[in-house]
Structures are given as structure tokens and as C-alpha cells.
């Protein structure tokens, strides 16, 4: 799924990485607990989270993720945007809550384990 499709499905606003919206991603995960992302996530390219601090971007960077979606209208800080830009990462924000945002993406074929449905 292209990141531009994620943006459309979630009615999301692009915070940074506008030039990366054509990138294809194959799986995603949703969590507010970064330790769990570091423990259980493998090859997921998109992180959906309601957590806002620079460690969210660093965690995504460690996991080689390319896009973070902030749910529940959370806005990343300027420091987070700068970090994301440095790593060529896309930041999106949506008014949708975690459950609905994950559900929309999953129902449209973006799975959790890297295998297309």
C-alpha cells in the first residue's frame, strides 16, 4: 500500500515527508508502548501511536520504519519533526482513534505480519 493511500484512508494530514508518499509499505503495527514495538515488531514499516515524544521517532528509526501515524489528533513536536526529517521518515496525523485507524488499514489490506492478505 502506498503511504498516500494510508493518508487518504485515515483522512490524515502530512506533517513531514511529503516527497515520500509514493513509497510502498507492506505491514504496520499499533502501540503506545515503545518497548513492545522493540520486542515484538519485525519488518513493519508503519507505526500507529498516540504517544508523543522523541523516543517514538528513535524507536521507529531503530526498527527501520518509514512512516509514523499519530492517532487521536496528537501532534508531534518540532524536535520530533526534525528527527524524522533527518531519517527521511513520513509523519502523518489523524483525528481517528487507534482502533479505528488500525482497522481501516487492516481492512484495506495492510496487514500486521508482513504477508499480504
Amino acid at each position: 500500500m502506498k503511504i498516500s493511500v494510508i493518508k487518504e484512508l485515515l483522512g490524515a494530514e502530512v506533517v513531514c515527508g511529503e516527497d515520500q508518499l509514493d513509497r510502498e509499505v507492506y505491514s504496520a503495527c499499533g502501540s503506545d508502548m515503545m518497548s513492545d514495538v522493540l520486542a515484538y515488531v519485525k519488518d513493519q514499516a508503519v507505526l500507529l501511536t498516540g504517544l508523543v515524544n522523541p523516543q517514538v521517532v528513535r524507536t521507529a528509526e531503530m526498527m527501520d520504519m518509514v512512516c509514523i501515524v499519530f492517532v487521536r489528533s496528537k501532534s508531534p513536536t518540532a524536535e520530533m519533526v526534525a528527527l524524522a526529517r533527518e531519517h527521511g521518515m513520513v509523519l502523518l496525523k489523524t483525528t481517528k482513534r487507534m482502533y479505528e485507524a488500525c482497522g481501516k488499514l487492516y481492512a484495506n489490506g495492510l496487514v500486521g505480519n508482513g504477508v499480504a492478505r
Binding site: 515503545m34 518497548s35 522493540l38 520486542a39 501511536t49 504517544l51 515524544n53 523516543q55 517514538v56
Partner: peptide, 15 residues
Amino acid sequence: SLGFGAGMGLPNMKR
């Protein structure tokens, strides 16, 4: 509340 401290740090390092 910052997304850490869930008791996964050392186990993750071992993992």
C-alpha cells in the same frame, strides 16, 4: 507514560 519502563529492556537486550 513515555512508552518505556514496561520491564522489557533487559529481556529485549537478551533477545
